[in-house]
Write a protein that binds this DNA or RNA. Structure first.
Lengths: 105, 105
DNA sequence: TTGACGGGTAGGGGATTTCCTACCTATTGT
DNA sequence: ACAATAGGTAGGAAATCCCCTACCCGTCAA
């Protein structure tokens, strides 16, 4: 599994996407993140592990707390992957779909 | 599972992302798509089903062929989801550039 | 020092994924 | 009409995912 694969796989879970959204407000300890989820803490720990291994979060230990921070850089891969499709949904919005269809066949 | 969930889940598979990439060249029958994958056709059919249910492809029957087309519009959800993170990876890049500039001194 | 707290790991169970082979339908060419 | 072709569905096996409980370590406070 390449790194981009891991990033897309990590984003496949709504829980993990929610974690990233929460981290937009800044680094937070696990407990605070856990308040937002209806699951036991070890399960959240595993989600954090997936995010860590995809490079999407980092942790900083401080006393008995572990602050998790957003690492958005791998998301650039997603944005880059998305680029070639952009013109297609823009075309759709502009009502140019018929034109595209003619081009295609 | 909401629609955005389905889209992210569909993109989690490298095979399905490859299918979308192939469809950038225009609608194609299943056979032609299958040439690019090391798997039996029914397995590919199931991947196509996942893409269909996520709204990422559509099919048009013509004779005994089924032409699959890219439907990029749901990808806009992904792009929208990405937006709030953009400034973070830009910040990171700027930081790296600053570091490099310092080193160059 | 001892308990409580923050948070990770181990291991298991059920659900889901992903591949397979076998089979089915619809269309086309002979 | 019949065989071949395009491609979907059925059902099963293996792997993976996601949640759980039980347990572990490190840190802080009494």
């Amino acid at each position: 599994m390449g790194r981009t694969d891991e990033v897309f796989a990590a984003l496949a879970s709504p829980v993990r996407r929610d974690v990233l959204r929460l981290l937009l407000d800044g680094p937070q300890p696990v407990q605070r993140l856990a308040e937002h989820f209806d699951m036991r803490r070890p399960s959240l720990s595993e989600h954090l592990k997936v995010l860590r291994e995809a490079g999407l979060v980092s942790e900083r230990r401080q006393g008995r707390f572990r602050y998790y921070s957003l690492e958005a850089e791998p998301l650039r891969d997603v944005a880059d992957w998305l680029t070639p499709y952009e013109r297609f949904w823009r075309a759709k919005l502009a009502g140019l779909r018929d034109l595209l269809d003619e081009e295609e066949l």
